[in-house]
Write a protein that binds this DNA or RNA. Structure first.
Lengths: 134, 134
DNA sequence: TGCATTTCAGACAGCACGTCTGCATCATAG
DNA sequence: CTATGATGCAGACGTGCTGTCTGAAATGCA
């Protein structure tokens, strides 16, 4: 049984983080921020990672500029969701509920965290009522 | 930069699931449940996976019986926690809070789910008050 | 003792992933 | 237009993980 490739690799993630933090960039900018005074092969490495990220739909490439400008196609939050769904698939038959209850039970929540959670829950109840009405 | 090995591999996880579902077992039982009428090499494969799981502290081996009896050393919930912490480390600088808020916001929660969540939250508040008192 | 089962150590192939090389392409200066 | 330097692109490579497999030693039993 062959192994399944990861959706976003560690090195790829490092690039994504930079795009999230610093916005659209060229390959050179990204490479220099990562390596500092990058040489040719390091430059090519970053380019390859971007190419793979683009193939995975995680990065957009603007070919109208020169050099090309890369920007993230998914947000941090979206990637979090994918990762969570992945662990849910592996460990909970796809259900996210066990993850939630685990987190709420085990995580050290600050008072603000609990407040915001209660708020979100209340909103959910509201929306639910609306949906039920119509 | 070398890649980091996974903590629990897919094939290893399949073995763990069986131990969780069916309790302590011998290698043969596990192999037959996985392959059905397993041959020698499949038997050895399961053995190797158990050996690696033991090295990772996920499986206990009782060498006083013959054949050895294997049982899971960690629960499903504990592994969930490890996975969650891992994604938190990668995407949220180690904080679990963003994971919680993402789940509560995005997941399709049933009415019971929300009820139980509210209950857990209330309990947390209670405990917090107690801790604050003493 | 002979036989079947299990354990153990190690080898192996396939592949993911990060890296690197060579060449084509483009923009700009002179 | 040509020279020059930066960039894009396609593909190869090494390392090491992962699942699988082989062979021999160890164990229990008739």
């Amino acid at each position: 049984m062959p192994r399944a490739p990861q959706d976003v690799t560690d090195a790829e993630l490092a690039i994504l983080q930079r795009l999230w933090d610093e916005g659209p960039s060229s390959v050179r900018i990204l490479a220099e921020r990562s390596y500092g005074k990058c040489n040719a092969s390091q430059h090519a490495t970053v380019q390859k990672l971007l190419e793979r990220l683009e193939a995975k739909g995680c990065v957009r490439r603007d070919r109208s500029t020169w050099p090309h400008t890369f920007s993230s196609a998914i947000g941090r939050d979206e990637l979090i969701g994918r990762q969570l769904q992945q662990t849910a698939d592996k460990l909970c038959a796809g259900s996210l509920q066990p993850l939630i209850s685990h987190l709420v039970r085990s995580a050290k929540l600050s008072e603000e965290d609990r407040q915001s959670l209660r708020g979100v829950l209340a909103n959910l109840v509201e929306e639910n009522k609306k949906n039920a009405k119509k």
